[in-house]
Design a protein around this nucleic acid. Sequence first.
DNA 1: AAGGGAAAGATTGTATACAATTTCCAACCC
DNA 2: GGGTTGGAAATTGTATACAATCTTTCCCTT
Lengths: 223, 223
Amino acid sequence: MTGALKSTRSLNVTEALRERLLQGEFDPGTRLQETWLAERMQVSRTPIREALRVLAKDGLLEYAPNRGYSVRHFSLDDIVSAFRVRSVLEGLGCRLIAERGMSSGLSESLHATLQTGENLLQSGQLQRGEFDEWREMNKAFHLAILLETHNDLLVRFAKQSRNIPIVFNGSFRWYSLREFQRAHDHHQVIFDAMANQQPERADFMMQEHIMHAALILKKNYND
Amino acid sequence: MTGALKSTRSLNVTEALRERLLQGEFDPGTRLQETWLAERMQVSRTPIREALRVLAKDGLLEYAPNRGYSVRHFSLDDIVSAFRVRSVLEGLGCRLIAERGMSSGLSESLHATLQTGENLLQSGQLQRGEFDEWREMNKAFHLAILLETHNDLLVRFAKQSRNIPIVFNGSFRWYSLREFQRAHDHHQVIFDAMANQQPERADFMMQEHIMHAALILKKNYND
DNA sequence: AAGGGAAAGATTGTATACAATTTCCAACCC
DNA sequence: GGGTTGGAAATTGTATACAATCTTTCCCTT
């Protein structure tokens, strides 16, 4: 299994809070007071403080000494900037794999996600519940590539760059069938480029893929 | 001034510990016990714990629940991987600036660093103390570019990617005059590319610049 | 009434006490 | 002897008490 067997309140609180921040539960600028959070989460201030510090490191909160933590505001520019960073990171991932060639394990994993994508597109129009399946598939595709690079820092940064409220839960909201199809096409080309050891093409298409997602977001995001 | 006026023991301990880790004061694998650190640093366990958690997030320490923190080992592969990541990040920085054109402020800052580099190379052979000057100049060059992008995540990641013991203090140790000259040439070309709005060239040369540094490291680093 | 400033309240920072878990070691069984 | 079990010691996790800092309020001065 993939699960974390051991945990602590501190870690649990961190992830619970992160989730709530990513859901956009707190308005930007809101000050997160330790005592308030502590009693609300049925826990002492100690694990709360540790969680807050970590989430600030992740860029979700802002911190000022003796003044505590507040919820960070993400402008549209911030979000697009994050996409740009992520695009070169994942682009690099594809390039590295294309250079050395795909392992059979990666080839199979990606093939499975492509198949899943194909199936989801068959129905003609993605239903409510299928959004989640698509999101799963998409996440699996991108993560499989990253992990195969065995570049620890690359994986960490790419994961971290997705820590943006709202964006990485409901962003497929805006997608029409046409957009899903295009994303699927991108995935296929990326796969093909890596399979045929075309680093430049793999890198470029991954950047294109991610920045197109940013473009759609830009068109629809209001704030 | 640039200084942080307000601070806390927690923050001070974090930076002090980070510095010592970057100096390679602790052998990889060493377990850092809270009580030991606490009495050695004349402070209670509380700020120590917060520091450890942050440094683990920065990738300098490894953490296991209920087992505490230990000093991370960086293989040569880890280090080169980090350089590769940094190269695409800073490459992106150059690209972004080349696309939109340099501000006069950046142009002046970079010109100053280039001049400093020129002067340091004049003497024919860099002396002991001049290594630090070169390091300062180099840091200023790279940081000025990053900051000008106004891409928060990019700056954070690029800075974080330098958090590797030993490497980013004494790496110029291996440089011959020839290598310093080559680095200086790179800086000049990067500046020129950005000044003439050549994004592709600026990006490429920054990657070349950083990966060449990695190459020198690879040749000389033993462990 | 506007501004300044001191005291009270609220909030964060730090130390310490206690709880939970792991580690170590020795006795024991097979 | 190899391995296991039990428990004591050590270490981390959590709660709480206290200290330092910031915030607010209200009174005073001009």
